[in-house]
Design a protein around this nucleic acid. Sequence first.
DNA 1: ATTCTAACGGAACATACGTTCTATGTCAAG
DNA 2: CTTGACATAGAACGTATGTTCCGTTAGAAT
Lengths: 219, 219
Amino acid sequence: MVKGKLSERQRRMLDFIEKFSNDSGYPPSIREIGKAVGISSTSVVNYNLNRLVDEGYLDRDQNVSRGIRLTEKLLKSVGKLSDVIRIRKVGRIFASEPVPLPSTDSPIFGADEAIEITRDLLSTTDGLFALEVKGDSMIDAMVNDGDVVVMKLAPDWHNGDMVAVWLKDKEETTLKHIYREGAKVRLQPANPTMGPIIIDDPENLEVQGKVVLVVRQLN
Amino acid sequence: MVKGKLSERQRRMLDFIEKFSNDSGYPPSIREIGKAVGISSTSVVNYNLNRLVDEGYLDRDQNVSRGIRLTEKLLKSVGKLSDVIRIRKVGRIFASEPVPLPSTDSPIFGADEAIEITRDLLSTTDGLFALEVKGDSMIDAMVNDGDVVVMKLAPDWHNGDMVAVWLKDKEETTLKHIYREGAKVRLQPANPTMGPIIIDDPENLEVQGKVVLVVRQLN
DNA sequence: ATTCTAACGGAACATACGTTCTATGTCAAG
DNA sequence: CTTGACATAGAACGTATGTTCCGTTAGAAT
């Protein structure tokens, strides 16, 4: 083998080991690797595993069942697993109340209530907070009851941002894409079949944050 | 034992299993657990492991060495950040095509795109694949152009599951909550203001997978 | 053509490993 | 005091598991 270049068989072995370990919670045995990759001899699997150790993709512990460990080099080469960011849930978002903004007070949820999101999914990690949507009132924002929205404060919002807006006269929170149009503000539903709301007096609304991510879990 | 309350021995076992798994990259064997916790009999370790499974802290695979998996409940109780699960993106979901299903072949290593999701957000980690939504045709499913849907194959779907259905006569994919009603099938949009589709002949549809998570990134 | 190295493959082996069985002990409930 | 459920413990067993040995093959280098 050319040093630094993996054979096709070795690459298939790594791929299998990485997937198997993720799916099962434990590494595969020599025989499981052989079966998956089409190698009938445990000594050939053993030989190739040792080559992968030499190349730095795996560690092995001797005389131990499933004694295979993925190395950082391997994880990087499959596309480094993303860091996890922990975002506090500060409460729920209702149509009839302003967004509960993060503060130093005890949040509605327990102090430890949080959602964990991979870093790749987030455009920023500064000043994020999460809210759980209650009710059907956000459906024009394509956001369901039970969805989690990750937001950040938006002192400087831009046209097209999806924001949580508190409409003072209606005493209502809504999620909309916001656009400044002259002296007015246009609130555009995410659902393309719905029409916008034009706010003649921007003093009537309060932009409480902008949405950076929506997560919907289904069972 | 009082249900829901762990004995001291069981708590020490969990603590050891979690630490050992982190340090070594693989779970401990029955005998390693026994040695660490001071239990000389493999059947006592086995008995207590089964109690921990009953309480939801562990999963076990039968007749497999180191066939112990930490559950989400355990990881939460030790306050540990969620694992990251890498889910292959197998393509895009269009209204006018069937869902591109994951191939049984091993992919060329590193070739596919993937999305990384924290384990907490997922009800299962088996057999997941991800698709990016193209077009506005899924808006009745509350799913936007550009959203990522995480799915799994659904040989046994249940009433209420959100599934990707290929409608043969219309040559169209749609995402709907599915219900079996006698000999017919009801496809219910996620948007509560929209009416259902009744499928008189279930042979006309093909359930291609069920949705377990929707992720929407906004910039 | 020959030699050398890498890779392969089957077989054997010893130990690791999880499961099962049987017996005993503890303690709460009646 | 008795009973039953839970927990313990040792032993046995069959299978899983990794390592080692020996021989073969393929291809590059000479």
